[in-house]
């Protein structure tokens, strides 16, 4: 049986080639846009810079994350995204190198919000941090996976596919230890399903990291945009 997904892909485990743009903004210290299909996030990084007195940490940089939705004001979902991204960054940024400073990252959704936005936001932020030259321990990459209503595992779902999902998993992997950095799972799933999602996400993240590498190589080579479509 030839499977046909709503956006024309023929395999449930097919990752759309992500689209990346490095340094689209001129004022920010570093910025990047990352998109899976039509879900896109623009991220900007300022720092290490002067820190607000009450946020000052004696032994490390303070990491601040702000996520803005495309429509309306930020609510609880955006707070959750901010918390998830901040926790990832806390473990990735070499923050002890910049005590008494702050590193601020801002993410803005460029398209309709679905769980996919979180993956895009994490990836865009990491690219923006690399663009800003902030020291990182490793490059983390994030993908989204769902278990659909017929218990099929679907990698990198579209917004329509997410709507009918039994469970949604946003996995973030490290490129050095290949271990999981963060995982946000919602819905009902079995241990076996979780295990298979884990393995699929792990290999998918490696290919996203290859895209990071390509993007950075293009920057160093003097060309600033990559369009992999």
């Amino acid at each position: 049986m030839v499977l046909q997904r709503s956006d024309g892909r023929t395999d449930n485990l097919q990752l759309r080639p992500p689209t990346t743009t490095l340094s689209p903004l001129s004022r920010a210290d570093g910025s990047a846009r990352f998109a899976y299909g039509k879900s896109a996030v623009l991220a900007a990084v300022y720092g290490p810079k002067e820190v607000r007195l009450r946020d000052e940490l004696l032994d490390s940089a303070k990491i601040e994350v702000l996520f803005r939705p495309l429509v309306g004001l930020s609510g609880t979902t955006e707070r959750l995204y901010e918390k998830t991204i901040r926790e990832i960054l806390e473990s990735v940024i070499l923050k002890h190198l910049h005590p008494r400073t702050s590193v601020q990252t801002f993410e803005g959704a460029d398209d309709d919000s679905s769980s996919l936005i979180l993956s895009c936001a994490i990836n865009a932020t990491i690219l923006a941090l690399m663009d800003a030259g902030v020291g990182l321990k490793s490059m983390v990459a994030s993908v989204t996976c769902i278990i659909d209503d017929s218990n099929q595992l679907v990698l990198d779902p579209s917004a329509e596919e997410i709507k009918g999902a039994k469970s949604v998993h946003v996995f973030t992997f490290d490129n050095v230890s290949k271990d999981v950095t963060s995982c946000v799972s919602t819905g009902v799933y079995t241990y076996e399903q979780y295990k298979s999602v884990f393995e699929v996400s792990q290999s998918a993240c490696a290919s996203v990291q290859a895209v990071y590498r390509q993007t950075m190589e293009n920057k160093v080579g003097g060309v600033e945009t990559v369009d992999e479509e």
Binding site: R27, A44, G72, L73, F106
Partner: peptide, 11 residues
């Protein structure tokens, strides 16, 4: 109209 001057735009 809802304007948001994102801190992304300028420090």
């Amino acid at each position: 109209f809802n304007t948001s001057f994102s801190p992304m735009a300028s420090p």
